[in-house]
Structure formats: C-alpha cells, structure tokens
C-alpha cells in the first residue's frame, strides 16, 4: 500500500471538506447578519403610528399607512389580472399543446421572462402605458407587477398539471366528458394545491419589487386610492427614505423593510405548507 499517496488523499479530503464547511459557515453567517440587523433595526422603529399615519415630512410623526395600502392595492390588482392569464397559458402548455412547437417557444420565452431584469419590465410599461396615458398611475404600477406575476404562475401551473396522472384524464374522458370539462373539474382540481403554491410565490415575488414601480406608479406622499394617479408603495418609499439624510426617515425605511420581509417570508412559508399538503395527498 502506498502510504504517501494515501496520506496525501486523506489530507486533500480533509482540506477541501474543511473549506466547504468554511464556505457554508461564511455564507450562512452573512445571511444571518443581514436578517439579524433587519430584525433589530426594524423592531426598534416599529410602532402603531406606522400603520395609522401616512407618510409625512420628517419630524411630524409620519407613518407608512399610505405606502402599505398602495402596495396592497397594486398587488391585488396585479394578481387579479396576472393569475388568470398565467393559469390559462400554463393549462395550454400542459394540456393542449404539450408537445407542439409553439409550446416549446412559449416555454422558452416564459422562462426568460421569469428571470428578466424587473427594471426592464418597468421600462416596458412606461413606454406602453405611462407614455400613452401621459402621466404616472397606479394602473401602470399594477400592470408592471402583473407582467411579473404571469411567468411565475405559468411555470408552476404547467409543472403541477404535468404531475396529474394521465389515468385521471382518461377516466374522465371515457365517461364522455368534454375536454374543457375534464380540465376544469378534474385536472385543475387535482393540481389545486400546487397552483395555489405558484400564486403565493408570485405574490411573494411582487410584494418586494421596487424597480418596476419607480417609473410606473412613481410615488405619492399623500393617501390616495385613485388608481389613475401616482400611488405610494412600500418599496418605493423605502428607496426614497433610505436615500434621504433624515434619521427619522431611515428608521421608517427599516420598519418598512421589516414589514416587507415578514410578508414575503410568511407567504413563502404558506406556499411551503400548501406544497407539503400536495405531497401528502
């Protein structure tokens, strides 16, 4: 037995495994530091007036209520528009056009849209909506977010429908059920938990998006529910406040960041619960 070779192999094994543990510790430590700072700074700035008062000039006890409301309104609109489109397109890819050439192209384009820089979606909606309407508006913001919702929902819907066993479809078809009816009452129902997961992930994704809102919904210092006017959103206010010199605004930015992170994390955890429910089915 070649002991020197053996010792060298053992040494390099030890060394590289130690390096990989070090890499893991290093990476996880940074992520823990970021979350820790966010929790400490955000919790320190948190109080009830953040949820009740709208944004105001520094020193006059402003909150974030209009920004929270704006984010909610635009997210709800975006999901209401984007989800049906996403589910229908995903259904086409999985049910009707599973092997067609057209589907290959749509799948490819959808995956590109899924990871395309979100700021470019903002530019697209700016050119398409803002330029033609002549002003920034909550409609434009919601449209930009809807464009971000669609690819996520398409992807998960298609994947989930593909997991539905073909025997279910065949059994329903053998009863003489029309195809559209099979899809709506059998396959959609079987894939319900998975599709729900996709929608939750899409909401989680748009609730923290800043870049596409900057020049579509812009921002608004006042409480406004007018969809045809600029509207504040939590990420846009954080962006504005963090860049300002005011300490009070910095604290509000931290509080807003904590609210967004908690919302995103709870949505992702909810999505996981749906996912595990699907697995146990």
């Amino acid at each position: 037995m070649n002991l020197r070779l053996y010792a060298r192999r053992r040494f390099s094994n030890r060394m590289f495994l130690t390096l990989s543990v070090a890499a893991a510790a290093f990476g996880i430590a940074w992520l823990a530091i970021i979350l820790g700072t966010l929790l400490v700074q955000g919790a320190a700035a948190m109080n009830l007036s953040i949820f009740t008062n709208p944004t105001a000039s520094a020193g006059s006890n402003g909150g974030l209520s209009n920004a929270i409301l704006g984010s909610l309104i635009m997210s709800v609109l975006a999901v209401a528009v984007g989800t049906p489109i996403g589910i229908l397109a995903g259904t086409y890819l999985a049910e009707y056009g599973r092997h067609s050439r057209f589907s290959v192209i749509v799948r490819f384009v959808n995956d590109i849209l899924l990871s395309a820089p979100s700021i470019l979606i903002g530019l697209f909606i700016y050119e398409l909506v803002v330029v033609h309407m002549g002003h920034f508006s909550a409609y434009a913001g919601a449209a930009a977010l809807a464009v971000l919702v669609v690819p996520v929902v398409v992807r998960t819907t298609e994947n989930m429908l593909l997991l539905v066993p073909n025997t279910l479809r065949e059994a329903a078809a053998a009863l003489g059920t029309p195809r559209a009816f099979v899809i709506r009452t059998v396959t959609w129902r079987a894939a319900r938990a998975g599709i729900m997961t996709g929608i939750l992930l899409a909401i989680a994704r748009i609730s923290g998006e800043t870049a596409p809102l900057l020049f579509t919904a812009l921002n608004n210092s006042f409480s406004s529910t007018d969809l045809n006017a600029p509207m504040a959103s939590l990420p846009a206010v954080i962006f504005q406040y963090a860049a300002s010199p005011s300490d009070e605004w910095h604290r509000l930015a931290w509080a807003g960041a904590l609210i967004i992170t908690l919302a995103v994390l709870s949505l992702s955890i909810l999505a996981r619960i749906f996912e595990s429910k699907r697995m146990s089915q």
Partner: peptide, 29 residues
C-alpha cells in the same frame, strides 16, 4: 363542442399573450 372550443381558444390566447409580452418588451425598448 362549442364551449370546448371556446376554452381551448382561451388558453391558446393566454399562451399567445405571454409571447406578445415578450415581443412587446423588445419592440417598446
């Protein structure tokens, strides 16, 4: 048969919309 065809066209339209968004991004940029 009609509602079947309608539903098929609806899903196909949604799939086209995904493609149109992509083309729209390129065209508008």
């Amino acid at each position: 048969g009609r509602s079947d065809a309608r539903f098929r066209w609806l899903t196909l339209g949604a799939a086209w919309l995904v493609l149109l968004i992509f083309i729209g991004i390129i065209a508008s940029l």
